[in-house]
Design a protein around this nucleic acid. Structure first.
Length: 232
DNA sequence: GCGACAG
DNA sequence: ATCTTGTCGC
């Protein structure tokens, strides 16, 4: 039978085929509404991996207001883990829970930043790209390490960056988001070009290496957060 | 055949 | 990702 247009519990071979099909639908040019809110998404695991914990944090984007980058909504969603971690197939493991979190979200952000790769993926469909297609929202992938592609050394000053390439194609940038700290890998997910993706990430940088949306989602998705905020 | 390999 | 304490440095 034909490969289903979408599904989560797929055998690796089917999942790979689906990624190649979905990648054809990606829009890598800007198609974004005026930004008022930016969401950060990240996934964590509990009970030795048996359960998946998805976190979405929405920040206000108002450059000239006191409420700039203030948190306006937070959501945590848990569900049983369905797939193991397989390099290149991360979205099949993390997206079900992420979508569950978005369903609980009261508002819709105009831009979404995801912890992981966008198109900087073997078949151009990293978690950020896959999520962008599913939600039909502009997404950007910010990964803490490299999955694929090659690059030269990055300058050590905050803001320095070099292109991440795969053959002749530029699939992302390696950005030194913080002086002397391991760089992050930025790549567009959906409905944005690389230049725009990079400028959004840079404009959301705070005092740490991760842009605020992703940093806060990271904290919420992590077990570390429970120690700060008693479970409930 | 031998590495590399987001979270 | 997760298991985990202290410790080096701005």
């Amino acid at each position: 039978m034909a490969t289903p247009l979408h599904a989560w519990n797929l055998a690796p071979k089917q999942a790979i085929a689906l990624q190649s099909q979905l990648a054809k639908r990606l829009e890598l040019t800007d198609r974004i509404d005026p930004v008022r809110h930016i969401a950060g998404v990240d996934i964590g695991f509990e009970d030795q991996g048996a359960n998946t914990r998805a976190a979405v944090v929405v920040l206000r984007w108002a450059p000239n207001a006191a409420s700039h980058l203030a948190v306006v909504e937070k959501v945590v969603h848990r569900e049983a883990t369905r797939m193991p971690y397989v390099p290149g197939l991360l979205s099949f493991r993390e997206l079900p829970a992420a979508l569950g979190a978005f369903e609980k979200l009261a508002m819709t952000p105009e831009l979404v930043m995801v912890d992981g790769q966008g198109i900087a993926h073997p078949r151009h469909l990293g978690v950020a790209a896959h999520l962008g297609l599913w939600l039909d929202l502009p997404t950007i992938g910010i990964a803490k390490s490299r999955l694929t592609g090659s690059h030269t050394e990055v300058g050590e000053a905050r803001g320095d960056w070099v292109p991440l390439t795969a053959g002749d194609a530029v699939i992302g940038v390696v950005l030194r988001s913080r002086a002397k700290v391991k760089p992050v890998f930025v790549s567009p997910g959906h409905r944005l070009c690389l230049d725009t993706s990079l400028s959004w990430v840079m404009s959301c940088l705070g005092a740490t290496k991760l842009p605020e949306p992703t940093r806060l989602a990271d904290r919420l998705a992590s077990r570390r957060d429970e120690k700060r905020t008693p479970a409930r």
